[in-house]
């Protein structure tokens, strides 16, 4: 079992759906939503509980829309 647990919060209205975060995530936590945001972009969303709070997604996000949290178990 993982010693840390993370979570991400995505500002979906500012997400442009570029998918760069998906390739950066080591645990395949992120996928593109079927829905679109107000600008018509499929936005990134967290799809499972595997996030370890490494912040890779947030670091490469060109639009700075991802906030990352992490808790030690």
């Amino acid at each position: 079992m993982a010693k840390v647990k993370g979570d991400i919060v995505i500002d979906i209205e500012k997400c442009k759906g570029c998918e760069v975060c998906i390739t950066a995530c080591p645990n395949d936590v992120i996928a593109m939503a079927k829905n679109v945001n107000g600008k018509g972009y499929h936005y990134a969303e967290s799809i499972n509980e595997e996030c370890i709070g490494c912040a890779n997604c947030a670091i490469v996000c060109p639009d700075g829309v991802i906030t990352v949290y992490k808790i030690k178990l």
């Binding site: 647990k5 993370g6 912040a55 700075g64 906030t67 990352v68 949290y69 808790i71």
Partner: peptide, 14 residues
């Protein structure tokens, strides 16, 4: 998720 999303657990934000 609410327990994780606390200011003290913040790792990265814009």
């Amino acid at each position: 998720k609410e327990q994780i999303r606390q200011p003290e657990n913040l790792v990265y934000t814009k």
